[in-house]
Design a binder for these strands. Sequence first.
DNA 1: CGTGTCAATTGACACTGTGTAAAGTTAGGA
DNA 2: TCCTAACTTTACACAGTGTCAATTGACACG
Lengths: 196, 196
Amino acid sequence: MSSDQIKTRTRILVSTQKLLETNPTKAVRMFDIAKDAGLSRQALYLHFPTRSELLIATTRYLDEILNVDQRLVPSRVAEKGTDRLRLYIEAWGNYIPEIYSVGRALMAVQDTDDAAKAAWEGRMQAVREGCLAVVKQLKADGDLVPELSTKQATDVLWGLVSVRMWEHYIQSCKWSQKRYIEVTHQMARQVLLGHA
Amino acid sequence: MSSDQIKTRTRILVSTQKLLETNPTKAVRMFDIAKDAGLSRQALYLHFPTRSELLIATTRYLDEILNVDQRLVPSRVAEKGTDRLRLYIEAWGNYIPEIYSVGRALMAVQDTDDAAKAAWEGRMQAVREGCLAVVKQLKADGDLVPELSTKQATDVLWGLVSVRMWEHYIQSCKWSQKRYIEVTHQMARQVLLGHA
DNA sequence: CGTGTCAATTGACACTGTGTAAAGTTAGGA
DNA sequence: TCCTAACTTTACACAGTGTCAATTGACACG
């Protein structure tokens, strides 16, 4: 009974992710998701109160099955700040493409839905925490360029690793994921450490 | 007759800009614009075929009355590449806040409207041209860091001065416009020239 | 003075997509 | 056998965009 409910719910989440992934251009409607998950549009509302909540749940689900936390462990345990910086950019930067489709949909509804806005901002705030930790360690190591305050440095790094920047390099500039990581790392070093 | 038509059209454009500016949070509907411009919602369609076209026309109108081209002249006539870089960042970076409200609305409909997408991308492509010109001059001066190709350097500068980055620093990080310009300039120097 | 034209109005309607509501179906478990 | 949970079908409310037809009011021209 309960395990069956979980199955349907999961099926919906999987369908949502899949459709967002495969239709980067067209809008994915509740109807499309329902069809793909094999139930009626109305039945979706038995599991998720609104489209926004469904999108939010899908990002959470992705975070879970893709193991964000675990991916960030290597950077967190690095001893040197510079290593931590590199590992953080690699981990998060390589995670972005996996959540981008859903993230994009979530960003799109932020203007019309407060819950979606809060969810996405919370998500991004967590990224900022990661940046802050990196910056603090760089500072402790005496590697942080003196002109930048901790807040400024964090905000700068946060911007460099933002989803929008990834979007810019990958979509608008057609860079490879590999180059994106390299250049972002290079830029972060140059700006935060004052040299390559 | 004709001048009267132009007046109404302009009134609509002004209302559109004004409403987008004053309601950064809420969606501005055709009804709202019509009310503000003092005519019926349907009458808007006598001047603009769709909401997207209205938004596009509004950005063009803004470009015109705010004199983008003229603002970019100083950077274009600079003799040294480094001066050109600074002047470009100042001119464009200080222009962004003036078009942001409309640009934001235009970005928001890109998923659903191809014309809007093309218009905005064209707009951004023009910015890229500006970046390219800056990079070429830096390279001609021998000031460009050797690791970056012209394309790479252009894409990087393009990203640094993108509307999304401005949004990030001004909205998410609550930076002042002044600091935004300073830090962006600093970052551009560091990344493109290899030093501050 | 009448006529034509043009901007705009009013009222009605089609369409899309989200979300709600009610009544009925089906399968499994006590 | 009865109950319950999950789901279905049908129907509808609502918002917002875009279309259409008939009408009005002003103004210019001969």
